[in-house]
């Protein structure tokens, strides 16, 4: 659903989307340090697989987007993760299009990044129930943002699309509900099992200076 194929969008929209995506990917890549590589790759893989399988629901069929989850865990690094997932889906399965990679990347990554950056500081201040609620809200709103971005891209490309945009947004409602549940559960789980990926541990800066110099002193000695 959120994968817009080639031949639908107009050239200015494609170029604009491409430029935005390139900026996002650039920022994301600069933000990734060694410790972020594995989790970025895992979420990219999760996104690649999760948004590949679609389930027919009602008149349309939907698939997970995971934008909210990625935004909360990865922040700006969501851009490269989404881009890699989309690139593989397009080249391996003809899913979406090559020319629309930029627009699709922005549609799927940007809402999650914005919401994730806004919501992350709140996670530390609330109980588990609050975290579920924040995760659910971010998940649902990220879907709404993706639907809005798609609708905008279509409307800017051709006014012919405007009448059917209600359908685009309406089909995303069940997905928003599903994403809300998935993101809520995931966030609560991560906060318990691996709080540092959500920036929740108070002593997070401590391990790095202790561990890394130790490793390097061994290297120098040998």
């Amino acid at each position: 659903m959120a994968h817009i194929p080639d031949g639908v969008l107009s050239l200015p929209v494609l170029i604009g989307g491409g430029a935005l995506a390139a900026a996002g990917i650039g920022l994301g890549l600069r933000a990734i340090d060694e410790r972020d590589v594995p989790k970025t790759a895992i979420l990219a893989a999760l996104f690649f697989v999760g948004s590949l399988f679609s389930v027919p629901i009602g008149p349309s069929s939907i698939h997970l987007l995971l934008g909210g989850t990625m935004g909360l865990v990865l922040g700006v690094a969501t851009f490269p993760a989404v881009f890699v997932g989309l690139l593989l889906q397009a080249t391996m399965f003809g899913f979406g299009g090559i020319s629309t990679l930029g627009v699709d990347t922005v549609n799927m990554a940007l809402p999650g990044v914005v919401l994730g950056v806004l919501a992350r500081p709140l996670l530390g201040r609330v109980s588990t129930a609050g975290r579920v609620a924040i995760g659910a809200g971010v998940g649902a709103l990220a879907v709404a943002g993706t639907a809005g971005g798609m609708a905008l891209a279509l409307a800017l490309s051709s006014p012919d699309y405007v009448p059917s945009l209600g359908v685009v947004v309406a089909t995303q409602v069940p997905l928003a509900a599903i994403e809300a549940v998935v993101t809520g559960v995931l966030v609560a789980h991560l906060a318990r099992v691996k709080p540092e990926v959500l920036g929740l541990t108070a002593f997070e800066p401590a391990p790095l200076p202790v561990v890394v110099p130790a490793a390097e002193s061994i290297e120098v000695a040998s």
Binding site: V37, A41, A44, F48, V49, G85, M92
Partner: peptide, 17 residues
């Protein structure tokens, strides 16, 4: 194919690291 895609992502991560 799906496993190939996941493998590609793992490879990219390795390359980045």
């Amino acid at each position: 194919d799906i496993m190939g895609g996941i493998g590609m992502i793992v490879g990219l991560a390795g390359l980045g690291a």
